[in-house]
């Protein structure tokens, strides 16, 4: 089956409600299928940094040359998430997820916001268009409050 056919098949299977959800999240159908099939949990870069660092420390204890033990993908990912983590401290990372999850966001939206830390309401909507779509309870004020909460965590980290 070619890629295109597969995509169309996906669209049919997903049905109305979901393809709508897909459109407003601004992600492809591909993502939605991945999301439903594998029951994947999205991770923010800062969370991945904690997980990978923990694993790397464990390796350090059991071997002399841990960098030799890990794959190139691991090494590159660790470098990447360290560079692009907005929060370093484990408590702050936990707080970010806790605070964002009060705003009825989809997993994916939560992680994009946590990763990119938009500073203005306009920027947040450009990054995650779905937070401002019909039927969602987010007005500008609520979004502003959410961004404020986020920057507070950063300040007190």
């Amino acid at each position: 089956m070619s890629g295109e056919e597969e995509e169309n098949a996906a669209e049919l299977k997903i049905g109305d409600g979901n393809s709508f959800k897909c459109l407003i999240v601004g992600m492809s159908i591909e993502f939605l299928r991945f999301d439903q099939k594998s029951k994947a949990k999205c991770l923010m870069n800062c969370e991945v940094a904690l997980i990978l660092e923990h694993k790397y420390e464990q390796l350090q204890q059991t071997s002399d040359d841990p960098m030799n033990q890990v794959s190139q993908v691991f090494e590159k990912s660790l470098q990447y998430v360290k560079r692009f983590s907005r929060y370093k401290n484990p408590d702050a990372v936990r707080q970010v997820r806790e605070i964002l999850s009060r705003y009825q966001l989809a997993e994916f939206e939560l992680c994009v916001l946590g990763n990119l830390c938009p500073e203005t309401v306009e920027e947040a909507i450009a990054m995650v268009p779905s937070i401002k779509s019909k039927g969602r309870a987010h007005d500008d004020e609520a979004i502003e409050k959410m961004l404020n909460d986020l920057s507070l965590i950063k300040k007190f980290e």
Binding site: E30, F31, L52, V73, S77, R83, L116
Partner: peptide
Amino acid sequence: CVVFRPFKGEILEAV
């Protein structure tokens, strides 16, 4: 496991 999967429409930061 932790996996990395890029998707169309996704916004991310890169070097």
